[in-house]
Design a protein around this nucleic acid. Structure first.
Length: 488
RNA sequence: GGCCCCAUGGUCAAGCGGUUAAGACACCGCCCUUUCACGGCGGUUACAGGGGUUCGAAUCCCCUUGGGGUCACCA
């Protein structure tokens, strides 16, 4: 029975890389008919951000990566479900205490009284000498009675992992193969901090074991600390899980994707109008590829196709371009009614659409969405598209001025004005009729017709379907723009 | 700097000893559309370098170079 977990710490927003880690865990669990667990790693109290657990769960649920064990949102509370709980590390302190005792008994851990100041000093000296900073092992030799006395007198202390000297520790990574370390290059990691909380390294091993986790799928930044975890499994004589270290997601500069260089928060992408399905689809393909050539997949299809052995080893640059393309595919294939629903908040962000328009002129809204649908990379793209259409000032560049100098333009303007004036409301149909009249009765057609009209009515040489655009603008604005041309 | 990981076009990537080295995004053309777009067709661009192993290396091994990660009482 496969059991995997996604174990984030509640320190704020959800990083796009975290989302991919969660996704791969989820896909693998579903593929194998196993369990996908959410665990909250909140052992650093100082980094806790209010509300981040709720935000985290919401993000996962929105993107369809839903766990079956762990914390869930119920009303205004968080409720844990599952028989391996608690799923929040700060609620498991007694468990860690119990296991650290065992470790000390086995002589795989020791109490250390070194102050942070001394540690910093040692580090600085080592760095100055060009050595790798590492705990010097001062407290390794402390006798049991010395330790007891110091504790009794109230000295603050931590518990450190007692790594064997000059020993090879190796493990198999499912995507990278055999990985070998020497303990001489490793530090005696702190396992329990002065505040009595475990560090990640200790809690992760205890919890993964107790929760029956079979596969650890996580980012490759954990690779260097994995031998410490392996040492703990050995110390406890526990069965080791399988390791799967995922390649990093990179910025354009090939460095780990970070907040400094644009959006990395899942909630930001969602806010900008990237559809959860598109985001998931794109991200699934960053570091993994199916054995077929298609690229557009539903979650269900991803589950079917997912395969740990096809995960890539090298880092992948997050390509905003391709995400845009992927998102546009999903937007175009969405039915209009659904799209109108999703895009409503963005339409309200424009300068011209009001709350009441949705009841009073649904067809008009529908027409706007239909017209711009094919031009959207994200839902928020509709805002500038609509605003630009209704811009106050129309300025012509040289190309447009050239077009307006056309021989038939004066006649075209005249007919256009009188025909539009005659209309009650402007619709694509009656604009088409007007164009027919102009073509048949005045012999103005093709580019000589469409280009000047587009330039006059929109101040652009490119854009969406002209008849739709004109209908969206409406009689009043059309005439105003045509008239202002005549005045000039 | 020590340790670890990685290396196919600008980007994502297929390839797992014998291929004209796929495909997608982006870019550039052309076609379609009496406007615009969608769409269709086509094109430019890659095995980091050097040694081996082999009849034969993008594929296996070594070295170099380059990039990344990590070295906390953070995860």
């Amino acid at each position: 029975m496969v059991r995997v977990r996604f174990a984030p710490s509640p320190t704020g927003y959800v990083h796009i890389g975290s989302l991919r880690t969660a996704l791969y865990n989820f896909l693998y669990a579903k593929k194998m008919n196993g369990s996908y667990v959410l665990r909250i790693e909140d052992t650093d109290q100082t980094r806790y951000v209010e509300g981040s657990i709720e935000n985290l769960i919401n993000c996962l649920v929105k993107t369809g990566i839903v766990h079956e064990e762990g914390p869930f949102i119920k009303g205004n509370d968080i409720e844990e479900i599952g028989s391996f709980g608690p799923y929040t590390q700060s609620k498991r302190l007694n468990i860690y205490n119990e296991y650290i005792e065992k470790l000390i008994e086995k002589d795989w851990a020791y109490t250390c009284f070194c102050s942070q100041d001394r540690l910093a000093e040692v580090r600085d000296q080592q760095k100055a000498k060009g050595e790798t900073p590492k705990y010097d092992g001062k407290c390794r030799q402390l006798s049991k009675t010395e330790v007891e006395e110091k504790i009794k007198s109230g000295d603050p202390y931590v518990i450190r992992l007692k790594l064997p000297v000059d020993t090879i520790i190796s493990f198999e990574d499912m995507v990278r193969g055999s990985i070998v370390f020497n303990t001489n290059d490793l530090d005696d990691q702190v396992l329990i901090k002065t505040d009595g909380f475990p560090t990640y390294h200790f809690a992760v091993v205890v919890d993964d074991h107790l929760m029956g986790i079979t596969h650890i799928i996580r980012g490759e930044e954990w690779l260097p600390s994995t031998p410490k975890h392996v040492a703990l499994y050995k110390a406890f004589k526990w069965e080791e899980p399988k390791y799967v270290h995922l390649p990093n997601i990179l910025n354009d500069d090939k460095k780990k994707l970070s907040k400094r260089q644009g959006d990395v928060a899942v909630e930001d992408f969602l806010k900008k109008g990237y559809l959860p399905e598109a985001l998931i689809n794109y991200i699934a393909l960053l570091g993994w590829s199916p054995d077929s050539e298609e690229e557009v997949f539903t979650m269900e299809e991803l589950i079917q196709k997912f395969d740990l052995t096809r995960i890539n080893k090298s880092g992948a640059v997050f390509d905003r371009n391709k995400l845009n393309w992927m998102n546009s595919i999903y937007i175009k294939s969405m039915e209009n009614k659904k799209l109108v629903e999703l895009i409503t908040p963005y339409l309200l962000d424009t300068d011209i659409i009001l709350e009441t328009d949705f009841q009073e002129k649904p067809d008009y809204i529908q027409m706007i969405v239909e017209t711009f649908k094919e031009k959207l990379n994200s839902l928020s793209d509709i805002v500038p598209l609509v605003n630009d259409l209704f811009k106050e000032e129309i300025n012509f560049d040289d190309e447009m001025k050239e077009i307006l100098k056309g021989e038939s333009v004066p006649e075209l303007v005249k007919v256009l004005t009188s025909e539009i004036e005659r209309l009650d409301t402007v619709t694509p149909e009656n604009i088409k009729k007007i164009f027919k009249i102009i073509q048949k009765e005045h012999g103005i057609k093709g580019k000589n017709l469409y280009m000047p009209v587009r330039v006059i009515t929109t101040g652009e040489t490119h854009g969406s379907d002209l008849m739709m655009i004109m209908s969206i603008l409406g009689k009043e604005i059309l005439l105003k723009r045509i008239n202002s041309l005549i005045l000039n």
